[in-house]
């Protein structure tokens, strides 16, 4: 499903974000990537969504080689990869409903069928009663859940979350991880970046630890 083979990433200026990283995540697996700030967690997740390309080595996602993909194929890969951002990246001039509708709109869904799916996704994250609210009217935790609803509405096979619980208190963080676990139980491959390695133990998930861009054994 996700396979890194001897992947390195050097940014212009010489900073090496990833060094010789090799791992494979099977379909339906749930894994955590942990490491200190700047260890390369975000870069690793971005490569899976083809936001960054490797400087050397190969990244294969759903059978497609990220480094060798044509520009026109990238959007179709991304439709199959749900992204949850630490800063949510919500559109503030659209309601909660419209924010979640956006991926379906892009994929060309029938509006009626789309609306049904949007409500199902909002229901899953517990925001069904806030569908008409604008993101500014939502709390930090609610914004994060809205971002999750947007990531899952297109029923992707892979869900990537970059520090999804970063700004949340412990209870809230627990709820969010519970949610990811339930998605994993219906077969979604999940990769979560977090600075805190204890979560993986708590959720009995696989843990990849990055240290200055290299994968610790």
């Amino acid at each position: 499903m996700i396979s890194f083979s001897q992947v390195s990433k050097r940014f212009p200026g010489g900073f090496e974000a990833l060094r010789d990283v090799t791992f494979t995540i099977e379909a339906g697996e749930m894994a955590f990537v942990s490491g200190h700030s700047g260890a390369g967690k975000s870069t690793l997740l971005k490569m899976i969504a083809a936001i960054e390309t490797p400087s050397s080595g190969s990244v294969v996602v759903n059978g497609q080689n990220i480094g060798k993909m044509s520009r026109t194929a990238v959007p179709y890969l991304r439709r199959n990869v749900g992204l949850v951002f630490q800063d949510h990246k919500l559109l503030f001039n659209r309601t909660a409903f419209e924010n979640v509708m956006l991926p379906l709109h892009i994929a060309g869904f029938d509006p009626t069928e789309g609306a049904r799916r949007v409500r199902a996704a909002l229901d899953k994250v517990g925001l069904l009663n806030r569908e008409k609210a604008f993101p500014v009217a939502l709390s930090g935790g609610e914004q994060q859940r809205l971002c999750i609803a947007r990531a899952i509405v297109n029923r992707p096979s892979i869900l990537l979350a970059d520090e999804p619980t970063g700004n949340l208190d412990a209870n809230y963080a627990h709820d969010i991880l519970e949610m990811f676990k339930s998605f994993n139980q219906v077969g979604v491959t999940i990769l979560i970046a977090t600075p805190d390695p204890t979560a993986a133990r708590e959720w009995k998930a696989r843990l990849l630890t990055l240290n200055h861009g290299a994968l610790a054994a």
Binding site: I51, R71, T72, P75, Y76, K89, L91, I106, N154
Partner: peptide, 16 residues
């Protein structure tokens, strides 16, 4: 800007 960036992140094609 934001709208374009987010749209691209969730799979919008260039023509879209």
């Amino acid at each position: 800007r934001d709208e374009i960036e987010v749209s691209k992140l969730i799979g919008a094609t260039d023509p879209f």
